[in-house]
Amino acid sequence: MVKAVRVHKVGGPEALTYEDVELPHPAAGEVRVKHRAVGLNFLDVYDRTGLYPAPLPIIPGSEASGDVVAVGEGVTEFRKGDRVAYVARYGGYAEERNVPEKVLVKLPDAIDYETAAGMMLKGLTAQYLLRRTYRVQNGDTVLIHAAAGGVGVIASQWANHLGATVIGTVGSADKAELARQNGCHHTILYREEDFVARVAEITKGEKCQVVYDGVGKATFPGSLDCLRPLGMFVSFGSASGPIEAFNIGILGQKGSLFATRPTLFTYIAKRSDLLTMCEDLFAVVGSGAVKIPVTRTFKLADAAEAHRALEGRETTGSIVLTP
């Protein structure tokens, strides 16, 4: 038996129940990981509320770090005692779990457990957004919504490191200061300012090559008006609710724009891609060019409290749960 947090019925934070669960010996191709830290993400909220339907009951949590304590038959890349981290749908909110070998990566000595748990999903998301979905170049101007959030803080630093001019939207003056400390050249208080008008002002009417939007409903279609002709709109999250169906012709009217809705799990489906992306992420973090601010830590048993803080926009940067 191990302790875990499960969702038996979708709902609010109270739907998260801390309980005992059976954990069998790792099956063939599986590795048992004793968690040291588990990342908290809006993806977990979507799973808990049913926005992303899943067969119940589920154990939320899609990124974590820890130590290998057992391996199943046929496992060749890992052995007991290895420091590891992973991104995998469901299962993270637990003291221990069995993980398919193909999703695990070895953790460099220079990266601690909490940093790893705070950056696997969010950091790899930033990696594919900036290096694969739209490859940010020196001299680009990029708009990042929720720039003080988990992905936003990482993406802003990384885009700055790549030589882009980074504009970030935030919800408060405190978050604006945090965004500036983490790579944003310009910040926009979206509750007080018209972000479309401010982007036009900041860029002297040139607008942006790309908009990275993890907010969703509240920032669409305004995000499209922040793009120059042939610009790329990248929708990667729905913190304010999903974007509803729209007339695709609007992309032509606003300048032959591109729009995409990528997901991390498509980008890491091939192990070779996962390893390449992790190598890139570990390199920029290891060099100090991108820092992973773990701003709050909650006990695993207090996952409901952590969800309330996340949904209440009370958090910035990366939040982790510790068993």
Rank of each mutant, 00 (worst) to 15 (best):
V21A: 14
Y52S: 08
I319K: 02
G231A: 01
M1A: 07
A64N: 02
P229W: 00
T141S: 10
V75W: 06
F282A: 04
V199K: 02
S156T: 13
A173Y: 03
V31A: 08
A159V: 03
A54Y: 06
A146P: 05
V38Y: 08
Y113R: 03
K204F: 09
G66N: 07
P53V: 06
N182P: 06
A28Q: 06
H35M: 06
Y128I: 15
R131G: 13
T260W: 06
V199R: 00
F195H: 05
L300T: 03
Q253K: 07
D109Y: 09
V211F: 12
A283W: 05
E311V: 08
V234D: 09
T17P: 00
D47H: 15
L230K: 11
A173V: 14
V10C: 10
P26K: 07
R83H: 13
I59H: 07
G29A: 00
R228Q: 15
E279H: 13
V71F: 06
I319T: 06
D280F: 09
A309E: 04
G12W: 07
G139E: 11
H185F: 12
S223K: 10
G168K: 00
D47K: 12
F78Y: 13
A176V: 03
R180P: 10
P13S: 11
R191P: 11
V84T: 02
S172E: 08
E114A: 15
I167C: 07
L227R: 07
T133F: 07
G149N: 05
V2M: 15
L51S: 06
I111F: 11
F233D: 12
A116Y: 09
V166A: 11
N160K: 14
L40W: 01
N138A: 14
V68I: 12
E314I: 01
T49Q: 15
E201C: 06
E193V: 13
P262D: 04
L130W: 11
Q127K: 08
E314W: 02
Y46R: 11
Y212W: 11
R198L: 05
H307L: 05
G183E: 03
P55E: 12
R180A: 12
L178Y: 13
L43P: 00
V211N: 12
A4V: 11
T266M: 11
F258Y: 15
A88I: 10
D67G: 00
Q209I: 03
D302F: 01
P57N: 10
R313N: 15
F233H: 15
F246M: 07
F282D: 01
Y90V: 02
G12S: 15
K80T: 09
R313I: 01
A289F: 05
A259T: 04
A64G: 14
D82L: 05
K270S: 05
S235Y: 10
F246S: 10
V153S: 15
A94E: 00
F220S: 04
Y18P: 00
L321Q: 02
A173C: 01
L124A: 02
T165Y: 00
L43Y: 08
K80W: 03
V136F: 13
Y90P: 01
K270A: 14
A27W: 02
Y46E: 07
L274N: 01
I144R: 02
L275K: 00
D44I: 12
A146V: 01
V211S: 13
T203E: 12
E311M: 14
N41F: 05
V5E: 03
P100Q: 02
